[in-house]
């Protein structure tokens, strides 16, 4: 019997490293430190171990052992369900919720990163077994770099659209109480006192899609909710329980596809608002590319 110790150990280390590198917490504080971390690192080690033992199992002609990988897939789907459930329940009592699309996106990422962990461990143990430790270190470094560079980050709104300031105002023709941004009706505000406050403090931006793909993405209500949630998280919203007048909203211009974002922020600075909108991730579920289809590209001109 060969000595599988380096194969297993390197596979395990590289897999765990892959999970650690892709486990990044940011302003959303999710996963929450430290308990969320413990859960995900533990599962990451399990995934790494699964990836690492696959090659030795093959070599020993223990083919049934490989079927354990399917068990792993089942297990990681559970992670997705777990994350989705937790986030959905927390989202219900949020003042500015993330919305289903964003939750689904986060849950999906958690699942897929465990598969990446398996893949990283698998390649590390394979290279170790065939070519030796030195090559494994080299190839693993490359793989991990690719993960961090390309898979742990995605496109943001700033990539697909222009974001410009547009001051909210009241009045559209004879309708004095309609809140407007550019040519877009945001909502109707009945109370005089609320209108005064909004007129004084509210900020608005206009998101101009760069092409029809971006327009289709911004058309998704889930994507717009994600923008509102990001903005409310980063710069703060005055929305309060029982005071719906301050609810941040995103509405589109039905003729041009531009989306107007209205918010009553804690601080009246426009630059951070534009930055926050630009930093919102483009959700996987909202990403659509109608221009790549024949019908879509013909409809565009």
């Amino acid at each position: 019997m060969d000595n599988y110790v380096p194969t297993l150990v390197i596979g395990l280390i590289v897999g765990t490293l892959a999970r650690l590198l892709t486990l990044r917490s940011d302003y959303r504080h999710f996963p929450g430190y430290p308990h969320g971390y413990v859960t995900h690192i533990s599962l990451g080690v399990v995934a790494a171990a699964l990836g690492a033992v696959a090659i030795p199992a093959f070599v020993e002609k223990e083919y049934t052992a490989v079927t354990f990988l399917t068990l792993a897939a089942q297990q990681f789907r559970e992670i997705r369900n777990m994350e989705r459930e937790t986030l959905s329940q927390l989202d219900e009592i949020q003042l500015v919720p993330m919305g289903k699309d964003m939750i689904e996106g986060i849950a999906r990422v958690f699942e897929s990163r465990n598969y990446l962990t398996i893949a990283a461990a698998l390649q590390a143990s394979l290279v170790t077994y065939v070519f030796g430790t030195a090559w494994a270190v080299l190839s693993s470094a490359l793989v991990l770099w690719l993960f961090v560079r390309y898979l742990a980050t995605g496109p943001v709104i700033g990539d697909i659209a222009e974001v410009v300031e547009s001051k909210p105002y009241f009045g559209y023709g004879n309708y004095k109480t309609l809140l407007m941004i550019d040519e877009i009706v945001i909502m109707e505000v009945g109370l005089e006192s609320s209108r005064k406050k909004i007129e004084k403090e509210a900020l608005g931006v206009l998101i101009k899609p760069k092409d029809d793909n971006a327009r289709a993405t911004l058309n998704r209500v889930g994507q717009r909710q994600a923008i509102l949630n990001t903005v409310a998280t980063l710069i703060g919203s005055k929305k309060e329980i029982g005071e719906p007048d301050w609810t941040p909203l995103a509405r589109k211009n039905i003729d041009t596809g531009e989306v107007a974002v209205f918010i009553l922020p804690n601080e009246p600075d426009i630059e951070p608002l534009i930055e926050a909108v630009k930093a919102t991730p483009v959700l996987e579920s909202a990403r659509t590319t109608p221009l790549e289809s024949k019908a879509g590209s013909r409809a565009a001109d």
């Binding site: 505000v189 009945g190 109370l191 029982g242 005071e243 719906p244 007048d245």
Partner: peptide
């Protein structure tokens, strides 16, 4: 509006 948590129009 404050009591019912509803929006006045």
């Amino acid at each position: 509006s404050r009591i019912t948590k509803a929006m006045a129009h």
